Lab assay of single mutants.
Amino acid sequence: MQRVNMIMAESPGLITICLLGYLLSAECTVFLDHENANKILNRPKRYNSGKLEEFVQGNLERECMEEKCSFEEAREVFENTERTTEFWKQYVDGDQCESNPCLNGGSCKDDINSYECWCPFGFEGKNCELDVTCNIKNGRCEQFCKNSADNKVVCSCTEGYRLAENQKSCEPAVPFPCGRVSVSQTSKLTRAETVFPDVDYVNSTEAETILDNITQSTQSFNDFTRVVGGEDAKPGQFPWQVVLNGKVDAFCGGSIVNEKWIVTAAHCVETGVKITVVAGEHNIEETEHTEQKRNVIRIIPHHNYNAAINKYNHDIALLELDEPLVLNSYVTPICIADKEYTNIFLKFGSGYVSGWGRVFHKGRSALVLQYLRVPLVDRATCLRSTKFTIYNNMFCAGFHEGGRDSCQGDSGGPHVTEVEGTSFLTGIISWGEECAMKGKYGIYTKVSRYVNWIKEKTKLT
């Protein structure tokens, strides 16, 4: 034993070699072989497995989906700052455009905790909710729209109204504003409101030439003092309507412009014939205590009207009353817009006519005020429907199939267009061939041609 100890002390290297040989010859039971080890760690190889990531292109799944990435790591994937920024906006807080917040056709661009709407022409605001041009839906104005110097929408209202708090709607500024039905039992019968379409306001006024200088022999019209197929109006439903009495009662109609003036057809009036105007009328054979009678003290036909040349060209006249009318729910003026808007309103496509005229061709006159909704007829169809001249200051309205029309005794009465609950004068009943005849239409004086003249002559002093 002493000898062994001496050998170990003198030859430590020998001992180490012996131990190493023993270990190498022993069977290893701690580690699995290569094949079995792979069965336990069965993990798919990654895209760049075996390579240094710093030297390969980034992978979106590896960089940002398996674990949260930084902007720089995302930049490695896209290799483009702009594309990385677009991805980053949604990656950080989701897609803010998912709810489609942009209105009126706006395009949404996502941002971090926010979004941006790219608005089409005519709109602005956070969600493109603000109209900035009158060309689109009248700028959301209830009545009139004008573009300011910086191309912003400025709404306005006709006389007797003021802008509401929203700067879009119009509200009454006087007790009985024009064009409004205020009798409670008839307010439910107000005709369907007309909503502004998209309009090209630059070209809204037709490029028409008034044929002022045409000389033409007097034409022989049949029954051209021209509501057939209409309905009984309720008291106060058309408070701007008046009836004219002269040699015979209810020979023509008219509309209240203001307390002192009536507008009617020029062919209705004769110099030297006494005319009485009755406002607030409903049943011409009954006294309903809503009527107001006034005498006409002055007749002003349009300066281009000449019955000797043509009885229905420039067929418009103004009547001055001896005493002002007292405005109330049964006696209310009709609204008159400017030339541009009167023309736009007419193009809405349908209007209402009213009167006490004959209820059928050569038949009896109506006792109760009649009204009828009539569609506008395109000019080409209008011209083809008659052998008589249709001037540019006239328009056609009615039904091709016949059966409904204005008729004798309705002449001078109103053709009105309702705009968001307020009625505007767009025409004056003038003439036609018979009444409600198939293929024939009622012919009306186009008020847009005469609004400046009306307003100039009827100013209240």
Results as ranks from 00 to 15, higher is better:
residue 2 Q to L: 14
residue 5 N to G: 13
residue 7 I to A: 14
residue 9 A to D: 07
residue 10 E to F: 13
residue 12 P to V: 13
residue 13 G to H: 08
residue 13 G to W: 06
residue 14 L to R: 05
residue 15 I to Q: 06
residue 16 T to A: 13
residue 17 I to P: 02
residue 22 Y to G: 09
residue 27 E to P: 03
residue 30 V to F: 14
residue 31 F to Q: 13
residue 32 L to N: 12
residue 34 H to S: 08
residue 35 E to T: 12
residue 35 E to K: 11
residue 38 N to C: 04
residue 38 N to K: 13
residue 39 K to N: 08
residue 40 I to G: 06
residue 40 I to L: 12
residue 41 L to N: 05
residue 43 R to G: 01
residue 44 P to G: 09
residue 45 K to M: 03
residue 46 R to L: 02
residue 49 S to H: 08
residue 50 G to L: 06
residue 51 K to Y: 07
residue 53 E to A: 00
residue 53 E to D: 00
residue 55 F to D: 10
residue 55 F to V: 11
residue 59 N to F: 03
residue 61 E to D: 04
residue 61 E to I: 04
residue 62 R to A: 04
residue 62 R to I: 01
residue 67 E to L: 00
residue 69 C to S: 00
residue 70 S to W: 01
residue 70 S to C: 04
residue 71 F to M: 07
residue 72 E to C: 02
residue 73 E to N: 00
residue 73 E to C: 00
residue 78 F to N: 03
residue 78 F to W: 06
residue 79 E to C: 05
residue 80 N to W: 01
residue 80 N to K: 05
residue 82 E to H: 05
residue 82 E to P: 05
residue 84 T to H: 05
residue 84 T to C: 03
residue 85 T to N: 08
residue 85 T to Q: 15
residue 88 W to S: 03
residue 89 K to W: 05
residue 92 V to N: 10
residue 93 D to T: 15
residue 93 D to K: 09
residue 94 G to N: 14
residue 97 C to G: 03
residue 98 E to K: 12
residue 99 S to P: 11
residue 100 N to D: 11
residue 101 P to M: 05
residue 102 C to S: 02
residue 102 C to Y: 01
residue 103 L to S: 12
residue 106 G to E: 03
residue 106 G to Q: 03
residue 110 D to K: 12
residue 111 D to W: 07
residue 113 N to G: 09
residue 114 S to A: 13
residue 115 Y to M: 04
residue 117 C to V: 02
residue 117 C to R: 02
residue 120 P to W: 04
residue 121 F to P: 13
residue 121 F to I: 07
residue 122 G to A: 07
residue 127 N to M: 13
residue 128 C to T: 03
residue 131 D to V: 06
residue 135 N to A: 14
residue 137 K to H: 13
residue 137 K to G: 14
residue 138 N to G: 06
residue 138 N to Q: 06
residue 141 C to K: 00
residue 144 F to N: 00
residue 146 K to P: 02
residue 150 D to F: 09
residue 150 D to R: 09
residue 154 V to G: 07
residue 154 V to S: 11
residue 155 C to A: 00
residue 156 S to G: 09
residue 157 C to T: 00
residue 157 C to D: 01
residue 157 C to F: 01
residue 159 E to H: 07
residue 160 G to K: 02
residue 166 N to I: 01
residue 168 K to G: 05
residue 169 S to M: 09
residue 169 S to F: 06
residue 170 C to T: 02
residue 170 C to Q: 00
residue 171 E to K: 09
residue 172 P to C: 03
residue 172 P to N: 06
residue 172 P to V: 06
residue 173 A to Y: 10
residue 174 V to K: 07
residue 175 P to W: 04
residue 175 P to A: 12
residue 177 P to A: 09
residue 179 G to L: 01
residue 180 R to S: 05
residue 180 R to M: 06
residue 181 V to F: 06
residue 182 S to D: 07
residue 183 V to E: 11
residue 187 S to V: 11
residue 188 K to G: 14
residue 189 L to Q: 10
residue 190 T to D: 09
residue 192 A to P: 06
residue 192 A to W: 14
residue 195 V to W: 11
residue 198 D to S: 13
residue 201 Y to A: 13
residue 201 Y to R: 13
residue 204 S to A: 06
residue 207 A to F: 07
residue 208 E to T: 15
residue 212 D to G: 11
residue 213 N to E: 09
residue 213 N to M: 09
residue 214 I to P: 10
residue 214 I to G: 07
residue 215 T to C: 04
residue 218 T to L: 10
residue 219 Q to N: 08
residue 219 Q to V: 12
residue 220 S to M: 08
residue 222 N to G: 13
residue 223 D to C: 06
residue 223 D to A: 11
residue 224 F to R: 10
residue 227 V to Y: 10
residue 228 V to I: 14
residue 228 V to F: 09
residue 237 Q to I: 08
residue 239 P to D: 00
residue 241 Q to S: 06
residue 242 V to P: 00
residue 244 L to A: 02
residue 245 N to C: 05
residue 246 G to D: 07
residue 246 G to W: 05
residue 249 D to I: 06
residue 251 F to W: 08
residue 253 G to K: 08
residue 254 G to A: 05
residue 254 G to Y: 01
residue 255 S to C: 09
residue 256 I to N: 00
residue 259 E to N: 07
residue 261 W to V: 02
residue 262 I to S: 00
residue 263 V to F: 02
residue 263 V to G: 00
residue 266 A to Q: 02
residue 266 A to D: 01
residue 267 H to A: 04
residue 268 C to W: 01
residue 271 T to F: 08
residue 272 G to H: 11
residue 274 K to S: 08
residue 274 K to Y: 06
residue 275 I to F: 11
residue 275 I to D: 02
residue 276 T to L: 05
residue 277 V to I: 12
residue 277 V to G: 01
residue 279 A to V: 04
residue 286 E to H: 10
residue 287 T to A: 13
residue 294 R to V: 02
residue 296 V to N: 00
residue 296 V to M: 02
residue 297 I to V: 09
residue 298 R to P: 00
residue 299 I to F: 08
residue 300 I to C: 04
residue 301 P to R: 11
residue 302 H to G: 02
residue 304 N to F: 11
residue 309 I to V: 14
residue 310 N to T: 07
residue 310 N to E: 06
residue 311 K to H: 06
residue 314 H to W: 07
residue 315 D to R: 01
residue 317 A to Q: 00
residue 321 L to H: 00
residue 321 L to K: 00
residue 322 D to N: 07
residue 328 N to M: 02
residue 330 Y to C: 03
residue 331 V to R: 02
residue 331 V to L: 02
residue 332 T to A: 10
residue 337 A to Y: 00
residue 338 D to E: 08
residue 340 E to C: 03
residue 342 T to M: 03
residue 343 N to Y: 04
residue 346 L to H: 05
residue 346 L to D: 02
residue 347 K to M: 09
residue 349 G to P: 04
residue 349 G to A: 06
residue 350 S to E: 15
residue 351 G to S: 08
residue 352 Y to N: 06
residue 354 S to D: 01
residue 355 G to K: 09
residue 355 G to I: 05
residue 356 W to S: 03
residue 357 G to W: 07
residue 357 G to C: 12
residue 357 G to A: 15
residue 358 R to D: 09
residue 359 V to S: 13
residue 359 V to G: 15
residue 360 F to V: 11
residue 363 G to L: 06
residue 364 R to M: 09
residue 365 S to P: 12
residue 365 S to C: 04
residue 366 A to L: 08
residue 367 L to T: 15
residue 367 L to V: 10
residue 370 Q to P: 03
residue 372 L to E: 11
residue 376 L to I: 11
residue 376 L to C: 02
residue 379 R to N: 05
residue 382 C to N: 02
residue 383 L to M: 09
residue 385 S to P: 04
residue 386 T to Q: 09
residue 389 T to S: 07
residue 390 I to A: 08
residue 391 Y to R: 10
residue 393 N to K: 03
residue 395 F to K: 01
residue 396 C to N: 02
residue 396 C to I: 02
residue 396 C to P: 01
residue 396 C to D: 01
residue 398 G to Y: 04
residue 399 F to Y: 15
residue 399 F to K: 05
residue 400 H to C: 06
residue 400 H to N: 09
residue 401 E to W: 13
residue 403 G to N: 12
residue 404 R to Y: 15
residue 404 R to I: 14
residue 405 D to G: 13
residue 406 S to K: 12
residue 408 Q to C: 12
residue 408 Q to V: 06
residue 409 G to P: 09
residue 409 G to L: 08
residue 416 V to F: 13
residue 418 E to S: 10
residue 419 V to Y: 14
residue 419 V to T: 05
residue 419 V to H: 11
residue 421 G to D: 06
residue 423 S to M: 15
residue 424 F to S: 01
residue 428 I to A: 00
residue 428 I to D: 00
residue 431 W to V: 13
residue 432 G to S: 15
residue 433 E to I: 05
residue 436 A to N: 14
residue 438 K to F: 10
residue 440 K to S: 11
residue 442 G to C: 15
residue 448 S to A: 11
residue 450 Y to M: 02
residue 451 V to P: 02
residue 451 V to W: 03
residue 452 N to D: 15
residue 453 W to V: 01
residue 453 W to Y: 02
residue 453 W to H: 00
residue 454 I to V: 06
residue 455 K to R: 12
residue 458 T to F: 01
residue 459 K to W: 06
residue 460 L to T: 08
